[in-house]
């Protein structure tokens, strides 16, 4: 393995921009789909009528979370073929659990006295959900999305194996060709991207933490 500055520049200037865009696209789409699926599931599972289902679904999600990322990516290929779609599918599955789990935890964590007071004043169940439960659970739900985002950014590098593109392409090429410069650019940008998502979502989380929670 030999380091070449020439190839490094090629990697960072010619290959990286497109790879980064693909990578971010993949992550965002999977994350949004995961949120759209997980948050409503989390909410449904905390409603009194569906509470019994909660344990079962959480267990299934837990199980899915234990599958190695590469295994899911590989399993998605025979069914969905190569490219962007199967990659997004695999990533979405990986992203579901932290969000669903935090949604449930967040909603369970809402002070029952606050809810009793709200019900006792005549707020309907729907109003209590939208005006009390969700706002109060929001910081925990957002923390789940943040965990999920960081996780999905890293698993997305595996998408290259099924032609999903992204930063994984650079890493895979580097590994195949014994080009350390490619590997460093791919892996390095992946790490930076994870930090970036974490920070940005951290800010969002702070913004949506109800003011009353901070006592300063």
């Amino acid at each position: 393995m030999k380091w070449s500055w020439e190839r490094f520049l090629v990697a960072i200037l010619e290959r990286a921009p497109q790879a980064l865009i693909d990578h971010i696209g993949m992550v965002l789409v999977s994350l949004i789909v995961a949120i759209i699926i997980s948050v409503p599931i989390g909410i449904l599972l905390t409603r009194p009528r569906l509470k019994w289902l909660g344990g079962i679904i959480l267990n299934i999600l837990n199980l899915m979370q234990t599958f190695p990322g590469l295994a899911i990516v590989a399993l998605a290929m025979p069914i969905l073929g190569m490219g962007f779609k199967p990659a997004v599918f695999a990533l979405t599955i990986q992203g579901l659990l932290p969000i669903a789990r935090n949604t449930i935890a967040g909603l369970y964590g809402v002070d029952p006295d606050v809810m009793e007071a709200a019900r006792g004043m005549g707020m309907s169940r729907k109003k209590v959900l939208y005006e009390v439960e969700i706002p109060l659970a929001m910081p925990v739900i957002l923390a789940g999305i943040r965990t999920s985002a960081v996780y999905v950014v890293s698993v997305a590098t595996l998408a290259a194996y099924i032609g999903g593109g992204g930063l994984g392409d650079l890493i895979v090429s580097g590994l195949n060709m014994f080009w350390p410069d490619f590997i460093v650019v791919g892996a390095g940008l992946g790490a930076l991207l994870a930090i970036f998502f974490d920070r940005v979502l951290g800010l969002v989380e702070k913004k949506y933490t109800p003011l009353g929670y901070s006592t300063e």
């Binding site: 002070d111 006295d113 606050v114 809810m115 009793e116 007071a117 709200a118 019900r119 006792g120 004043m121 005549g122 707020m123 309907s124 005006e131 009390v132 706002p135 109060l136 109800p210 003011l211 009353g212 929670y213």
Partner: peptide
């Protein structure tokens, strides 16, 4: 029930003020 409760004042020991509202 919701209409009924709107017309009855209700105070509980833990007060139950919504912490995210002024």
């Amino acid at each position: 029930p919701d209409q009924l409760r709107m017309g009855i004042g209700y105070v509980i020991q833990q007060i139950g003020l919504l912490p995210h509202r002024t």
